[in-house]
């Protein structure tokens, strides 16, 4: 297979396979979670479940002061990586075209230099995340194979994207194909790993907010 053939495969059938696994996996997982159901609370409410749940979905994004102080490395590295990745993922013109093709809507892109900077920052932050994971006592204790796998699979698209952007080492079709394939790999494992938190964290936060809010506590 030539690199152009691999690229064509990655842009076509490969993407199709990955999308089917990703979409089906995520939908099944969400159904799996929601259909388990939750008993209605019979205690007299002190606050609203719904509004508090919705609020926590957003407010939990910001850590409280003491938590920030105690876990600053984890939080800063995590946030920088997530934000950097978010920006380079959603605001790079070629990516926007991908979304446009997929969902029919598009939005303004950011200049290449900004995307590049975000990707670099994100890569550095992700490396910091790994170092932190391996050196922080608690994280090292909690870390299992899945954590390392998902780290690696998240790192791959970033690094291949960076290489493709700067055309380092290989020809553009090879780099582009590598980038696409790495994304496809990420999509395939996504529904079966902790990467699902991308979606389920909103459910989790809602439940957390609802449980607390029902008792009149902001969480």
């Amino acid at each position: 297979m030539s690199e152009i053939e691999i690229l064509s495969w990655a842009r076509g059938p490969g993407l199709q396979i990955a999308t089917v696994i990703f979409v089906a996996g995520v939908v099944i997982r969400i159904f799996e979670i929601l259909l388990l159901g939750r008993k209605a609370n019979l205690a007299e409410a002190k606050g609203s479940e719904m509004s508090s749940g919705l609020k926590t979905m957003i407010t939990r994004t910001v850590p409280d002061k003491t938590t920030f102080k105690r876990s600053s490395v984890t939080i800063v590295a995590g946030y920088v990586f997530h934000i950097g990745m978010f920006i380079s993922f959603f605001f790079f013109a070629p990516h926007i075209l991908f979304f446009k093709d997929l969902i029919g809507i598009s939005w303004p892109s950011l200049p290449g230099a900004v995307i590049d900077a975000c990707a670099v920052i994100s890569i550095i932050a992700l490396l910091a995340v790994l170092v932190n994971r391996l050196t922080n006592k608690v994280m090292r204790f909690l870390t299992n194979f899945e954590d390392l796998l998902t780290w690696f699979l998240t790192f791959l698209p970033l690094i291949t994207g960076y290489f493709a952007f700067h055309r380092i080492g290989f020809t553009a079709p090879s780099l582009l194909a590598a980038h696409l394939l790495s994304v496809e790999l990420l999509l395939v494992v996504f529904p079966f790993t902790k990467l699902m938190h991308t979606f389920t964290l909103f459910l989790a936060r809602w439940y957390n907010g609802a449980i607390s809010g029902y008792r009149g506590v902001e969480s």
Binding site: R29, T67, G78, N136, F141, L142, K194, M196, L203, Y207
Partner: peptide, 13 residues
Amino acid sequence: VAAFFSSCVHCGI
């Protein structure tokens, strides 16, 4: 519970 376990990223916070 299912949503909680699905979301844990082992951040240790």
